[in-house]
Amino acid sequence: MSGLFITFEGGEGAGKTTVLQQVKEKFEQDGMQVIATREPGGSVIAEKVRDVILDPLHTEMDARTEALLYAAARRQHLVETVIPHVKKGGIVLCDRFVDSSLVYQGVARGIGIDEVLQLNLFATEGMMPDLTLYFDVKPEVGLARIAEHKGREFNRLDQESIAFHHKVRKAYLHLQEREPKRIHTIDASEQIGDVLTKSLQEIQAFMEKKTT
Rank of each mutant, 00 (worst) to 15 (best):
M1Q: 12
S2C: 01
G3K: 01
F8T: 10
F8Q: 05
F8R: 11
K16S: 12
T17P: 01
T18L: 05
Q21E: 14
K26A: 15
E28Q: 14
D30C: 11
D30G: 09
M32D: 12
E39T: 13
S43V: 06
A46H: 01
V49N: 03
D51W: 01
V52K: 04
I53L: 14
I53E: 11
L54K: 06
L57I: 03
E66M: 06
A67I: 09
A72M: 01
A72Y: 00
L78V: 08
V79Y: 11
E80T: 08
I83V: 14
I83Y: 03
K88Y: 03
I91H: 01
L93K: 06
F97G: 03
S100G: 15
L102I: 08
V107K: 08
V107I: 11
V107F: 08
A108R: 08
A108Y: 04
I113W: 09
I113E: 08
L117A: 12
Q118I: 03
T132A: 11
V137R: 04
K138P: 15
E140R: 02
G142D: 04
A144L: 09
I146W: 00
K150E: 13
R152V: 02
R152L: 10
F154P: 00
Q159H: 05
E160G: 05
E160H: 07
E160A: 10
I162F: 07
A163N: 05
A171C: 03
L175P: 01
Q176W: 12
I183C: 13
I183S: 03
H184N: 04
I186M: 07
S189A: 14
E190V: 09
Q191V: 13
I192F: 01
D194M: 10
D194R: 13
D194E: 14
L196F: 07
T197M: 10
T197L: 12
S199M: 06
E202L: 15
Q204R: 15
M207K: 13
M207R: 14
E208R: 14
T212W: 10
